[in-house]
């Protein structure tokens, strides 16, 4: 059983927000593992599915706020891929709430923390990974 969350974090926004959370001494559950990516648009469906294969309970793709992507379309493309991953999860009978795309600005550590906490709540609902 694992309750781990893999969070693919854009290095221009979410990763910085997570760093800021550390600097401000905010707290969030320990079960999240951040993987730094150059843009949310770098994240592919295979990365998301691999995370589930390796036992993640949930996957987050965290990119810049809409309309503020450093690479113009990265976050919208990531959103499309996450949506597609959700349909795949549904097809194999998994709860598609386990994967989610969220937007966080680099200066928004509280939002980042809230997202991690909310995902943990969801894991309680949908169950840990087997």
């Amino acid at each position: 059983m694992s309750n781990k969350i893999i969070a693919f974090c854009c290095e221009h926004s979410a990763y910085l927000a997570a760093d800021l959370a550390g600097k401000q001494g905010l707290h969030y559950p320990e079960n999240v593992r951040l993987i730094r990516v150059p843009c949310a648009g770098r994240v592919d469906v295979t990365h998301i599915l691999k995370a589930f294969e390796k036992g993640a309970a949930a996957v987050l793709v965290v990119g810049c706020e809409e309309g503020a992507c450093q690479h113009s379309t990265g976050n919208t493309r990531a959103k499309e891929r996450v949506n597609y991953s959700q349909t795949l999860l549904q097809e194999i009978g998994m709860d598609n709430r386990r994967v989610e795309m969220v937007n966080v600005a680099p200066g928004a550590p509280h939002k980042f923390v809230r997202i991690i906490k909310e995902m943990n709540e969801k894991i309680k609902e949908v169950g840990e990974a087997k």
Binding site: A18, A21, Y28, P29
Partner: peptide, 11 residues
Amino acid sequence: NIREQCAWVHE
């Protein structure tokens, strides 16, 4: 990143 994203954010 064992400081900002590990030691400092967890109790």
